[in-house]
């Protein structure tokens, strides 16, 4: 009976193979390489070459890169994603020396810095973007706030974002805003309330582009019927419950929106 159990053989083999001939301690071996870092942190550019921040040039082959992706948020605004290569976000060491491939990002809207980003995701609120088309840019920055650059040009990723549709030209003060989306026109929203025979805000004209969407939100203190002339839309108004009417303004002209029973003009739509 001279068989050695497998487990014991394994232990003995491990000790023989791995242990003999070099230190076997229950503590410190030589450990990680303690060689000093030699990687270059690039060449700082002239002061204030790009806004408040200097650039820091590195060879193209070693330079970090960034791509900026923009997608509408399901609730409001946009979600931005920075897809980087050769780059790590290091929020905890901000303010320290520039180390290759580390740092944070700066976000610019039409060239104006609007945020510092410490990670690949950022939520851009709807209010941050004025109506119309705009350019977003993300630049990668070192811990010391110099911008990583190649041949003097900051490493950056850009994307276009469409702000909320231009505010409709309203007479009176009916609100006309649209939810933010990355593309496509937003519906023109008109909110009106009727109380004690009085319309708030006072009736005015709302301009709508032909083919655009219109959203009416009407609240009243008594039962009535809302009628949109020209589009032949009639809907009952229930006291206390907002009535929402949404339609495409596919005819040009001036159209009144009124209540049947109380004969109040709620607003006028100018479609052209």
């Amino acid at each position: 009976m001279t068989r050695l159990p497998l487990g014991v053989l394994a232990v003995a083999a491990a000790l023989l193979l791995g242990g003999c001939g070099e230190p076997v301690t229950t503590h410190h071996r030589p450990g990680t390489d303690h060689a000093p870092a030699t990687a270059s942190a690039g060449t700082p550019g002239p002061p204030h070459a790009h806004g408040d921040h200097r650039t820091r040039d590195v060879p193209a082959a070693e330079a970090p890169s960034v791509r900026l992706e923009v997608r509408p948020d399901s609730d409001s605004g946009w979600n931005l994603r920075l897809v980087t290569e050769r780059f790590t976000f290091t929020p905890d060491s901000v303010g320290g020396a520039a180390l290759p491939g580390t740092g944070h990002a700066h976000l610019y809207l039409d060239g104006k810095k609007i945020a510092r980003l410490y990670g690949p995701w950022h939520h851009l609120p709807r209010e941050a973007v004025p109506p119309g088309s705009h350019t977003l840019a993300a630049r990668l920055s070192a811990d010391d706030h110099t911008l990583w650059s190649v041949a003097g040009k900051p490493v950056e990723g850009t994307a276009t974002v469409e702000g909320p549709a231009p505010e409709a030209n309203t007479t009176g003060s009916a609100t006309a805003t649209g939810p933010a989306t990355a593309t496509g026109p937003a519906p023109v929203t008109v909110a009106v309330s009727v109380s004690g025979g009085k319309v708030t805000p006072p009736p005015g004209r709302v301009e709508v582009a032909k083919g655009g969407r219109v959203r009416l939100e009407v609240t009243g203190d008594r039962a009535d019927t809302v009628h949109v002339h020209g589009f032949d839309l009639e809907r009952p108004l229930i006291p206390g419950t907002p009535l929402v009417l949404e339609f495409t303004a596919d005819r040009s002209g001036l159209f009144e929106v009124e209540t049947h029973d109380s004969r109040l003009v709620l607003t006028q739509l100018v479609v052209r």
Partner: peptide, 20 residues
Amino acid sequence: KLAVAALLALLCLAQAAPAL
């Protein structure tokens, strides 16, 4: 077996100068 393993290990230990 354990005793054998321990002995082997101790022999190895005795040969080596431990690290700091």
